[in-house]
């Protein structure tokens, strides 16, 4: 079991309130991703749940039990750190065995659990090596192994893939998702990478300056962002946000249109512009269009390979059904 409830949880560092009172429920078995820009308080929130920081107010309940005052080890949670935080003087086996040794488990039970974790994470070949002799991906797997053997109520991941190169990150992302499918344990994952958030999460919590901006499934956030911040944060490339007269035509303060919801034509369309930089990814082409007369440069995503050159004139037509409207306060209009 691993149901975690935050009830008016707040954190202050002296006079600075990094997390104003906040409510959140994480259901058992859910994969929840905390996402937000740097300094938004996502790591602090995770550390509050872990017990590595004391809360300034409110209550944290794990499986109905008040865990606010419990030390980290008594909360039944396991954490994977961005820096891996492996014990450099211990072999992989000893690293994984450490929490079991601290829990006073028998040698037989320790061996059984270590072998099981090593098998799940393909650690068997280098179980007797030290962390210094492993690659980044292998180290992160050891860190996950150390978390798995404890059979925790929930896993806490603090930007675990940030130190890995792009290719390895994709691989590890899949491994963590598969691990969640297999273990069905609650996972809380902190990242600033919205691709990780979109691909891994059952539920995304978007944070800004300690406030929860929106909670929802990845597609809910994509389809119906609650405000301008979420609209701009979720989606890659980010949503085009247009204010001014064009937004006025739609009866709102700001309109948002995702790059993939704009049709491109060389002859006719709603907006006219001049192509700046083109990025050819093979599967997609991104255009950055200037001089649109909207006060903003637009990003357009077209499927496949499209040959348009810098300086070419293009006409853009937004998909009316996919247009997002936001009011003066930045909130979404129905």
């Amino acid at each position: 079991m691993g149901r975690i409830t935050l009830d008016k949880v707040a954190k202050r560092f002296g006079e600075v309130e990094v997390i104003p009172p906040l409510d959140l429920t994480i259901e058992d078995g859910e994969f929840v991703v905390f996402v937000g820009p740097s300094g938004c308080g996502k790591s602090t929130l995770l550390r509050l749940i872990a017990g590595l920081e004391d809360v300034s107010g409110g209550e944290i309940r794990i499986d109905g039990q008040n865990a606010t005052e419990l030390p980290p080890a008594k909360r039944g949670l396991a954490m994977v750190f961005q820096s891996y935080a492996l014990y450099p003087h211990m072999s992989v086996r000893k690293n994984i065995a450490f929490p079991l040794k601290m829990a006073g488990l028998s040698e037989d039970e320790q061996k059984k659990r270590i072998d099981n974790a090593a098998k799940i994470l393909n650690l068997t070949d280098y179980i007797d090596r030290r962390p210094g002799q492993l690659s980044g991906g292998q180290r992160q797997r050891v860190a996950i192994g150390r978390a798995i053997v404890r059979e925790p109520a929930a896993f806490l991941f603090d930007e675990p893939l940030s130190n890995l190169d792009a290719a390895l990150r994709v691989g590890m992302r899949l491994e963590i998702t598969e691990l969640h499918d297999r273990l069905k344990t609650t996972m809380i994952y902190v990242t600033h990478d919205q691709v990780e958030a979109m691909t891994m999460a059952d539920k995304i919590v978007v944070l800004r300056a300690g406030h929860i901006e929106q909670v929802g499934t990845p597609l809910e956030l994509y389809r119906a962002p609650r405000n301008v911040f979420v609209a701009g944060f979720i989606g890659s490339p980010k949503m085009n946000l247009i204010a001014g007269a064009e937004a006025g035509k739609h009866g709102c303060k700001t309109i948002g249109i995702r790059p993939e919801h704009i049709a491109v034509s060389p002859t006719e369309g709603t907006w006219k512009g001049r192509v700046g930089v083109s990025e050819h990814l093979g599967s997609d082409t991104f255009f950055y269009v200037h001089d649109t007369g909207l006060g903003e440069d637009l990003t357009v995503r077209v499927a496949g390979e499209v040959e348009l050159h810098s300086g070419d004139t293009v006409y853009l037509t937004p998909d009316a059904d996919k247009l997002h409207r936001f009011d003066d306060t930045g909130l979404r209009l129905a």
Binding site: P72, A73, L77, M79, A85, L86, Y87, F98, P99
Partner: peptide, 18 residues
């Protein structure tokens, strides 16, 4: 010694002595 490692030890259930 990185703080992360000490925090990892605390998460792993190590007492101050351990």
């Amino acid at each position: 010694i990185p703080v992360d490692i000490l925090e990892a030890a605390r998460m792993d259930g190590a007492s101050l002595k351990n």
